[in-house]
């Protein structure tokens, strides 16, 4: 830049070589700034959830030894006992060999009563305030499967209408889950039995998986989950229904704490019409396998290439 271009940027005096700053002025400024910072940070004193030191340094689920898991489970049980006054035992059932779970839902039978929605919420210890639901029932106009014209929040009395059919949608437990690809820290993955799980202690809460899911199946704890002690389900799995943290993702796990013991998921148990079927798709004798082979089934949004293990059918 030529010399006539030389002009200063707010220096007190154009010829001043070295800007002068008095010690008192500097100290006063530093003090003011420190006080302002402290005041700005003060809401942290009312933080609803503060991770403990152990929480902070906890490793990824897959890197934990059996010893470490034991310690962590005991710590969680003690915390739940303290917070809810309920004694629990946190289980960690592993996938069974030769088992891959699948679901079939008969839209011809579903009446849209939403019993599954609430049974799921109770079983899985979801937050009641704000309410988190894994299953969403769409009230669909007959003659189309257009999701955009479906109604999501129809009042209860509009269930079992002859003019509509009802389509419950929850996690489709995809064979090619997009949600796990996008996770920057591998906090969500597909287990050997095909169930997609989340490590609630590893998730950083970026919600990329929520954006990547074509089925709107994931739920994020924007607030600290609130769950009355009397509604707590004490039968807990580490990767499924233990109480969740603020700021982490969660989703349907096919009730793995039940299904890996040979029980049915809560949504299926409660269904009054028998629209829901669940089982091991690798077992040729299983009910789901027979339906998939004998009935005409379809999957939701086949075009996105996720290969769901959640099948729909319009049977009698």
């Amino acid at each position: 830049m030529s010399t006539e271009d030389q002009k200063n940027l707010g220096l007190k005096n154009e010829d001043q070589q070295e800007p002068v700053i008095s010690r008192r002025y500097f100290l006063a400024g530093t003090a003011c700034l420190s006080v302002a910072t402290a005041v700005s940070l003060s809401p942290l004193l009312n933080a609803e959830e503060v991770p403990s030191g152990d929480d902070f340094i906890q490793k990824h689920y897959k890197e934990l030894s059996d010893e470490e898991k034991k310690e962590i489970f005991a710590r969680l049980e003690a915390r739940i006992d303290k917070q809810y006054g309920v004694s629990t035992s946190i289980s960690d059932p592993q996938p069974m060999d030769g088992v891959e779970f699948a679901y079939v839902l008969n839209l011809g039978r579903c009446i849209g009563c939403r019993k599954c929605v609430y049974a799921c919420m109770k079983e899985n210890n979801q937050s009641r305030s704000p309410q988190k639901q894994y299953i969403r029932v769409l009230k669909m106009k007959k003659g189309t499967i257009n999701l955009e014209t479906s109604s999501h929040d129809y009042p209860e009395k509009e269930a079992s209408s002859e003019d509509f059919f009802y389509m419950p949608v929850s996690c489709q437990q995809c064979r090619e889950p997009k949600c796990i690809e996008v996770c920057p820290v591998k906090a969500t993955w597909k287990e050997k039995d095909g169930i997609v799980v989340v490590d609630y202690n590893w998730c950083i809460g970026c919600r990329y998986c929520e954006a990547a899911c074509p089925y709107h199946a994931r739920r994020f704890n924007f607030a600290k989950p609130q769950l009355p002690a009397e509604e707590l389900n004490p039968d807990m799995g580490y990767l499924s229904n233990r109480p969740r943290y603020m700021g982490v993702m969660e989703k349907c796990t096919f009730c793995l704490h039940k299904t890996r013991r040979g029980e049915y998921p809560a949504c299926m148990e409660v269904c009054p019409t028998g629209a829901r079927k669940f089982g091991n798709i690798r077992d040729p004798e299983s009910e789901v396998r027979k339906i998939i082979e004998q009935e005409r089934v379809f999957v939701l949004k086949q075009e996105v290439g996720t290969l769901p293990k959640f099948y729909y059918t319009f049977a009698k």
């Binding site: 940070l41 809401p43 942290l44 609803e48 954006a211 603020m246």
Partner: peptide, 30 residues
């Protein structure tokens, strides 16, 4: 500096009470 401090204050509130303090939700999650 003043506006930055207001922002820091709001961010502290968000840290304390979660992203519930924003307008986001499971539908519009970003």
């Amino acid at each position: 500096i003043a506006v930055s401090m207001l922002g820091l204050n709001a961010f502290s509130r968000q840290l304390a009470h979660g992203l519930y303090t924003t307008g986001m939700g499971d539908e519009v999650s970003w």
